[in-house]
């Protein structure tokens, strides 16, 4: 119960004010623009867009930094997929994902989705509703890192 109370308070409080001097989480979204040069070579450019169109490939980058005076233990980063974005991959960052709105979590390969006929099928990237990275070791003071995943505008 005590843990539950703490968590509720954390959710109600304005996060940045509480944590401004501890851990920062910085969110950037880039769009992969493919251009073909004069020699026919394809180049992928990452641009920070204000506008996108269906089919655009987006790269979501989350930079974290422990600016506090204490190591940050049980560090977990969660990103709900925007409804208009279909999850593609998370590079080699091996996140947990949820395919049911955040109720259950696991590696994508371990999850399944119920079918209308009562059976279950293996979960696909397009089923992902949430992404989560759970760190097994504390982030030391001054520690930084980067998490990323890709998605496609539906």
């Amino acid at each position: 119960m005590r843990t539950g109370l703490f968590l509720l308070l954390a959710a109600l409080m304005p996060g940045p004010a509480l944590a401004a001097n501890q851990v920062a989480l910085d969110n950037h979204v880039f769009v992969e623009r493919v251009s073909t040069d004069a020699e026919g070579k394809q180049r992928i450019l990452l641009e920070e867009p204000k506008v996108v169109v269906p089919g655009d490939r987006l790269v979501f980058v989350l930079n974290y930094r422990n600016a506090g005076a204490q190591p940050a233990d049980k560090f977990v980063v969660t990103n709900p997929m925007p409804a208009a974005v279909r999850f593609a991959d998370a590079g080699d960052t091996r996140p947990f994902v949820s395919v049911d709105g955040g109720k259950q979590w696991g590696l994508l390969a371990d999850l399944s989705v119920p079918m209308a006929d009562g059976t279950r099928r293996a979960a696909q990237p397009a089923d992902v509703t949430h992404i989560r990275w759970a760190f097994q070791t504390p982030i030391p003071v001054g520690g930084t890192g980067k998490l990323m995943f890709r998605g496609v505008v539906k």
Binding site: T3, L7, A24, N27, V29, K50, D73, F75, P80, I139
Partner: peptide
């Protein structure tokens, strides 16, 4: 898009939001 992070820096579990990115 907004991400959240939770951690414990000694004072119990803390949750923070990232900045929000809006795309039209």
């Amino acid at each position: 898009n907004t991400a959240t992070a939770s951690f414990d820096a000694g004072g119990g579990a803390t949750t923070i939001d990232s900045n929000r990115v809006d795309l039209l």
